[in-house]
Amino acid sequence: MAYNILIVDDSKTARAFIAKSLEVAGIEIGAVFEAENGKQALDVLHSHWIDIVLADINMPEMSGLEMVQQMKQDGLMQTVPVVIISTERSLTRIAELKAAGVRDYMNKPFTPENIKQAVDRILGGRGE
């Protein structure tokens, strides 16, 4: 099964690095969508079927946390799993993200293996 993946990060480099890591990890990808902030991500989620969202926290216009909070208010988006990929290391902040509904969390820098483990944990390894 191929997954539609939405990558949300204000850094073009970070988005490209995540996309490359997905490819290197051997995850079967249907389509990769990109957004520069939470607001753009919500627009993509409104118009496309997305299997998983990989998002940064610290972004202009709308943060990753605000994006997740808005997704949880929307009947169609609330079940889409979100993995945060960020430089944030605070356990308090990570707990706050998980309480808001974030499914998993990864530190930058990460390896393709880290991203594969996170996607497999959430989507059940069906992308292999």
Binding site: T13, F17, T87, R89, N107
Partner: peptide
């Protein structure tokens, strides 16, 4: 852009 992202990760 890569330079900014490097700094972001280093800061964390």
């Amino acid at each position: 852009d890569a330079f900014k992202e490097l700094l972001n990760v280093v800061c964390g």
